[in-house]
Design a protein around this nucleic acid. Structure first.
Lengths: 362, 362
DNA sequence: AGACTCCGCACAAACGTTTGTGCACGTGGA
DNA sequence: TCCACGTGCACAAACGTTTGTGCGGAGTCT
């Protein structure tokens, strides 16, 4: 009779496998990690171990591996709001991308608050994530830069920073602003209202810049009083619309800087009794799956979110590769410096833009 | 001169802190974990350690803790598609809920495939998650049940199973089907087309059951040929609509079983030139942020997704608490058996339902 | 027959924590 | 003076891996 099965019953560890196979722990480890050849484990032993492991359903403890290997196989993903389709789309692409490379993703939701973002960063760092993808709330970057310089690869997406010392991926926001504005101009609009997101954030600034470029090229100018709003929410879209229309009755077109804002704009226009596009044209940045089913299908400069997510995943994996290489060679070179990717935006012309209504003189 | 700072430069470990404070590792650990009193560490030492730790920015390695404590502080969340607003809303609530309790969430996206779901489950298990929230693809439950019985708390949400041996949280799908159908009946409809999700899935079956209940109560019956579709996608919604309308010209109302299906239905009706609700009424299960901005604001029986997510988080935390208690007492009792929560659905009457068009005899 | 080599594997240290136990010192009473 | 006891801390084991090194035996060569 063999040993009477001590009934340890806990999870199957390498030691259990080794004993069952009648070899030492180290041999078992090497047999299972494909290191049989280099450590001269006989074919017979190797296969025996593998068989036993399979029979017992051995699952190596990633925790123990992480401790020993000093790599957790985890990447952190921090977004301001995972229930926002924009971020969940990014999360999805990143998740698929890094999972294919054997990593798992630790998710953090910062609820649009820098404080929480910082807390999450620290938390994920303590959990030894090997890299971090952050869609920052957008106002502070110092904590991220520090982290990156301390050796934990950080890549930021979407709400990147001005003084960019971090690898980043973002849409070509200047172009997005430009092409969306151009549509309005091409239809003959001269007086725009801009419903803006957080003012200091770089995407907002870039989009404004694009808007101004297009206007300038057509001899127009955007004055500050035609801009309203300072956040990315539906409610801001609603309020800002009423504000702008009250202030500037000559406005014939509204520019919404993101999908939730656009929803608010539409809601306000509906409440105010405007017909779109007959009495008011609307363009938006950001597409939305339901955009074409709406009362008036919305013309928009769409960010290519999937592509953005995929690129983010690539950059992340690239940085991870670099890091592993560096950790091996002990070279402490500064790396190749941050890379900044921009993915193109594209125009989706639908039905929310038309020639301006005849002015009251007519 | 003190020791010339060996320039270990790696991450700050407990040992570094202990040396800097001039105490042993164990003392440092206890000082930092609030165990000073019970292990008779003097107030002075305790504070010294805490000060040094703060100065050095000590962050205990969660990996090492996990190994030693045998709890990772991680919960796994597996959804079929994180970019689907329904699941991302759930993920968000769960994330917020468990984070508040000190856990982090490991995210997995099964892409609607049982194979991937299984792989993810194994992966997360290897990473020692302490509990798992799964929104199952919906066809197989055995791997989850096994896991749960092997001691890893599993709770399933949304696409639960028939032979439910797992704690679950789901909408009251029977009621959702019933109330949405009742609206149609109240408006005078007699001939419905049902655009269905995955047939064998329990939510679908429950919703159908609700539909039938409402019809039966009004002397109507639903025959199999008035049901089309077998997945939750936009495309299925589109195809099924054309199919149903071709097969049953007498249909005056369509019932879409979820938001993406509804989008497909609307798209098809638009292509076919139907005016809603004049020529065709539409109800849906699932609300959508843009629903009221659509061409015809959609009447729907809304699941309360946030509530569902919050309840899921609660159940998860409850099971975690039970587990910790059990691990302590070594009692190996079966626990209180699975609990099944249902959150109510509520009707959102908007504009997509009207009295049926006069029949052609008129 | 002895030295050398290669093969096949086991030993043990290390990763960074937590925690049961033990040791030294000091103080009090008898 | 001696014992008992409380105080304040250090030692060391353990969690489950990976991996550098050591060691015995079989074979080969001289």
């Amino acid at each position: 009779m063999p040993s009477p099965e001590p009934l340890k019953s806990g999870p199957i560890t390498l030691r259990i496998v080794a004993e069952a196979a009648g070899v030492s722990i180290s041999t078992a480890s090497r047999a299972l990690n494909g290191q049989a050849r280099e450590y001269r484990i006989s074919k017979a032993t190797e296969e025996a171990v593998q068989r036993v492991a399979a029979e017992l359903g051995f699952q190596p403890s990633q925790v123990a591996r992480s401790l020993r290997l000093k790599r957790s196989g985890l990447v952190g993903v921090i977004v301001p709001d995972i229930s926002n389709p924009f971020f969940s789309a990014i999360a999805r692409e990143v998740s698929l991308g890094v999972e294919a490379a054997g990593y798992s993703v630790l998710l953090g939701d910062s609820r649009e608050e820098t404080t929480i973002e910082k807390r999450l960063v620290a938390q994920l760092q303590a959990r030894q994530v090997e890299a971090l993808l952050v869609c920052p709330v957008g106002l502070e970057s110092q904590h991220l830069v520090q982290l990156d310089q301390s050796g934990l690869p950080v890549v930021v997406a979407d709400r990147v920073f001005e003084d960019i010392q971090l690898s980043s991926v973002t849409s070509d926001n200047v172009a997005a602003g430009r092409i969306a504005t151009q549509v309005l101009i091409d239809h003959g609009h001269r007086h725009f209202g801009v419903v803006s997101g957080v003012r200091e954030s770089l995407p907002t600034r870039h989009r404004l810049q694009g808007i101004r470029q297009a206007m300038l090229a057509n001899g127009l100018e955007l004055d500050a009083s035609s801009i309203a709003g300072d956040s990315y929410t539906n409610e801001t879209g609603y309020q800002s619309t009423r504000e702008l229309l009250g202030r500037h009755p000559e406005i014939t077109a509204l520019f919404a800087m993101c999908a939730p804002l656009a929803a608010g704009v539409l809601r306000a226009l509906s409440d105010l009794g405007y017909a779109i596009p007959m009495q008011m044209s609307v363009v938006s940045i950001d597409d939305h799956p339901f955009a074409e089913l709406m009362k008036t299908p919305l013309t928009a400069a769409a960010q290519n979110i999937e592509q953005l997510g995929r690129v983010a995943a690539e950059v992340l994996l690239e940085r991870l590769k670099q890091k592993r290489a560096k950790d091996k060679t002990l070279s402490t070179g500064p790396g190749r410096g941050p890379v900044c990717h921009q993915v193109p935006a594209s125009l989706l012309e639908r039905a929310s833009v038309a020639a301006p209504r005849p002015t009251s003189e007519f």
